[in-house]
Design a protein around this nucleic acid. Structure first.
Lengths: 240, 240
DNA sequence: GGCCCTGTGTGCGCTGGCGTACAGAGAGTG
DNA sequence: CACTCTCTGTACGCCAGCGCACACAGGGCC
């Protein structure tokens, strides 16, 4: 998938918001250990219970944390993009989590060896501080997902999902079939088709065969449930 | 509510699993700063966005973390008892969270001034280690709640809720009306009545006017969804 | 004992999402 | 160009949970 790389926003570690927030000295220490990797759509970064060798700092990719149940049904728990990192269990002390991380939007990330990260984290400096604040933001996102799953209609959840994804992308276009969105939201594909059809008719989005363009962000923000704003506000508050 | 105190399991800080896991030296340092407090049913420990002056280590009380929406609807995000602490946002760096903490089962807890906790946490010793592992367990619980809200029926969620509560209590009796349980689960009161009626008919529980007794734990574990076991396993793994 | 208040049981009709099934429509391939 | 595969549209019956309304029942209080 990685066609001839063009120099883009993905090519600088500082395009990850956490790395960007590090003081120069800490950043310099990390830099030689950061390794850019390409993340094709669908890559499974870790499996439920599996150990993770690296933490990943996405630049222009988006990663979904999702839980797959015994019967195969799934639900997204949270997503992470350039504003965060993948692999919190490494520094939280548990090493693994009972969830799966999948690349939801292809792109690049910088990775850091688990052992190196732990060492840096234990120094107790800026990296620890940032990582913990990010984790709290992630917690808010998960909590809000729980609430949203309980109380809100599929259409609203789709709006939330679209907005959260677009927020993490350089353009307003996502490569994603309705089938996959349905998996993420933990609903039927047909439910997504209907909701997306309504949104398209109302002129908020345009889509065709696995490609969705958000054409009217403002209107999307009107239709979405409160959950989107709550999470966004908390991310803005906690991450710089 | 606190009738004449009898010396019970609540009267020793070490009955909180996190405090119990501290090495002697760290514990001795904390002890003079630990203050026992009584937590009557319904006490709001913090409000969404409100700052918290203390972290609480429950001994025989249970605290619900719940989110209240704009229209008044609510949903429980997680619960914490003797195995954990209330107030993770203090050491995670955010100071507040957009949720509410309410005492779900009356009892006692030991509290520690926020400033003191932060100082101890920043030392990077056993307390930090334990607090972070607990936080990861809490994250698992929240993630699983999100999944459970999406896919499982009210009856199964009720089973999960009952088991999780009983696990954190010294007896198998809970003081809790169906109305309150419905608030926690974010469902209708009638839905709880029906599910509870079925469970009673099947001989798993007995209840009357705000008092529920779990009489057959094993059968409850058969009826519950997988979510309960996933979370329990993760707690056992992460907390000692 | 009679009263009231709180908690529980039950019965509607409604609707959103589910499971299933199948038809059409892009887009790439030979 | 025909072929196939993937993605999207639509329809139908089904059921869990919702909102509402009201009846009953235990238990404390005067």
């Amino acid at each position: 998938m990685p066609k001839s790389r063009t120099s883009s926003s993905a090519d600088n570690p500082r395009h990850n918001r956490l790395l960007a927030a590090l003081p120069e000295a800490d950043y310099e220490r990390l830099l030689p250990n950061l390794q850019q990797v390409s993340l094709p759509l669908g890559t499974v970064m870790y499996e439920s219970g599996g150990t993770l060798g690296y933490v990943y700092f996405p630049t222009d990719s988006i990663v979904s944390l999702l839980y797959v149940m015994e019967d195969g049904a799934s639900a997204e728990i949270a997503i992470t993009g350039y504003e965060g990192l993948v692999g919190i269990s490494l520094f939280m002390g548990g090493e693994t989590t009972p969830s799966r991380a999948v690349v939801q939007s292809a792109g690049y990330a910088y990775r850091l060896k688990a052992a190196f990260l732990k060492k840096e984290f234990d120094i107790g400096g800026a990296l620890q501080h940032l990582a913990l604040r990010f984790t709290q933001a992630l917690i808010t996102q998960m909590a809000q997902t729980a609430v949203c799953n309980r109380h809100h209609a599929v259409e609203q959840q789709l709006c939330r999902w679209l907005l959260m994804s677009v927020d993490r992308l350089p353009s307003n276009e996502l490569i994603m079939t309705q089938e996959l969105i349905a998996n993420m939201l933990g609903v039927r594909r047909e439910g997504v088709t209907e909701a997306a059809g309504r949104l398209q008719k109302a002129g908020l989005i345009e889509y065709s065969r696995g490609r969705i363009v958000v054409v009217d962000r403002e209107k999307l923000e009107v239709r979405v449930c409160e959950c989107y704003a709550v999470v966004k506000k908390e991310y803005d508050r906690l991450l710089v």
